[in-house]
Design a protein around this nucleic acid. Sequence first.
DNA 1: TAAATATGTCAATATGGCTGACGTAATTTC
DNA 2: GAAATTACGTCAGCCATATTGACATATTTA
Lengths: 167, 167
Amino acid sequence: MGDHHLSEQETVALVELMFFAYRDFVSDPDEILGTYGFGRAHHRVLHFVGRDPGMTVQQLLDILQITKQSLGRVLKELIDKGYVFQKEGEADRRQRLLYLTEAGEELRQRLMGPQISRIRRAVALPEGNAAHLYRKVLYQMVSPANRDAVLDWIGRASLPGDTQDGG
Amino acid sequence: MGDHHLSEQETVALVELMFFAYRDFVSDPDEILGTYGFGRAHHRVLHFVGRDPGMTVQQLLDILQITKQSLGRVLKELIDKGYVFQKEGEADRRQRLLYLTEAGEELRQRLMGPQISRIRRAVALPEGNAAHLYRKVLYQMVSPANRDAVLDWIGRASLPGDTQDGG
DNA sequence: TAAATATGTCAATATGGCTGACGTAATTTC
DNA sequence: GAAATTACGTCAGCCATATTGACATATTTA
């Protein structure tokens, strides 16, 4: 078992690295978004809709964990500017299934580009298995109550060998 | 060299885990802050001032990477409510050195508690060295331009064996 | 003495959250 | 078939946090 307890100092360093890493991680897409008059909220919608085309509004709300009123404006802007469109559900005609337009998919790729590079750079370390460990560690950072949903989203295949509680 | 290129799918999974992990990572302190009428901005100030008592306003701005106007209100509220106080600099009397009151330090500890637990839980994995790799990976996520400042802040001692570009 | 620095503040603006209320269409349940 | 529930949209108001630009004051440095 790996319960070599981290020292206070080491742990605080990790807490702070989480802050610094996230701050810089979102800085590249933020800059691109600015030139479109969009913000982080638009990025998230673009990203998740692009990752699961045809998702319902409710599914998107569950992932973002925001209210429909908050989503409303952002979604409307993305639709008005031609990056997202909606299609009536076939099985359930109350649903407005979400899709990216070509421009939307292009923008999504453009926004993700720097983050992909940053992740690849970050896990390309001399040690073997850094990516695997990083993935497991980040997964453990997710609240237990949310892990099933996250695992479903990410695709269980991408966490090979993991049981539900990540060990 | 460890440039086993990650697949697109694996990398996207890491991008998304970064989002989910950060979202949950800040959720515990957010809840506590709400009961004080504070927000994330207050947390950051409390944390960094507590980590480096006597820091100047400008140093805090450099770390947070926000404008002094943004900091202004938050800092004023923390001072008014008795969590932070200022002291005129001795060497340079223009400076208003920042310190936490006892209540401030208590709140800081309380806010950090859940994050410390979460990190310790996350790095307590069967594999050895998870914490070390996690630290290196998060460090690599920081923009190169900011790494020196982050390293200075974290304390170079807490990244043993690392060269400036992270080993 | 002049210039630069550290800090504070006023005003206006933008973004992205929130709650609460209300409306409509479609589906499900009784 | 009527009633309840669900999926979605929207209006209104509020709050937190960020921004830019301008200006003021005290202090230090050149």
